[in-house]
Amino acid sequence: MKPTWYECDQRYLPAHHQPALLLDLLLVRDAGSHKVLKGTGLFYEDIIEGNRHISALQFQQLISNSQKLAPEGDLSFRWGDNLWPGHYGLGSQLLSNAPDLKRGLQALVHFRHTLSPLLVPRVFEDEHYCYIQWLDTCCDLASSRPFMVETSMMALTSLSRWQSQASLPWRYGFSYQAPTKGIEQYQVHLGEQLMFGLGVDVMVIEKCWLERAWPKGSVTAFRASWHEATQLNPESNSGFCEAVYDWLVKHIQQPVTLPDVALAFDMSSATLKRKLKKHRTSFQQIQDQARLHVCLYLLHVKGMNNEQVAQQLLFNDLTNFRRAFKRWSGLTPSASRQQFQLHSLAL
């Protein structure tokens, strides 16, 4: 089946939803709306009118402006704190009716293109833990990435706390190194269980929390909305980069080149390259990311050793695997394993 996707310049995000909330947070801090909206091609009236749609690229520009205007470093957390369930249509309705974390995540993943358009959640489970990985979907977020990771992780933390009326024991892993300034924001808003420099942005929780009932949810209401949702759009939408990433992960055990992907996406190699460039990324970048994430999954979640992982990913020998892994993540596989275990996740 030919993959379907939305692209970074497609205007489908209602401007009066998540962007308006961010704008309001900034206006309270005396930032002029023209400064916040600079370079987005939007006016303040567009956002409050309530019928304009913006693209992922415009949204990203708005976020990168916001970062500059709020040097305190708590904007992402404040935004995330009030982001979900929100009032963003069926997705929000599902979130506020979710009877437990498992179904909350189900709704979040299905409606990711409206609830979490720039950084999407992907859910994995092993014997003991549930992992929520956050992935750039529509375009490479570059320097806005930490900001969006903070927002998304805060949003899920806050949603689960609000719906379950208790703080859940989340643990957080970040692809980037600990920030030199503002680590206190992480402590206060997310808690003490933080792991930096992990190569992937992930939240971890014991599986027993998945099915613990959320007092604010309702099984009946959730089922009815879910039924409606899957009738309307049975397949949920992916961002373009996410679609390429997914395809690459699916074919990770084959030697894949750019023309193979172009063929699968029913376009010429040149078109694929151009589209990737438009999304501010490249084939190599997505492939490296996909392979690193699969490596980390096999190493940490599946508990494989280096030989097994190297074999799975078609490396000729261990040295090559180690070298490639170091290039992607900045750590050797064994150092990465050690770091992950240091934080007592594997217990």
Partner: peptide, 19 residues
Amino acid sequence: LEIEQFSVFSRQYGHRESD
């Protein structure tokens, strides 16, 4: 020191009031 249930307040009354 920290405020207990600050996030609940912030959800109920919005970010302007919590500021």
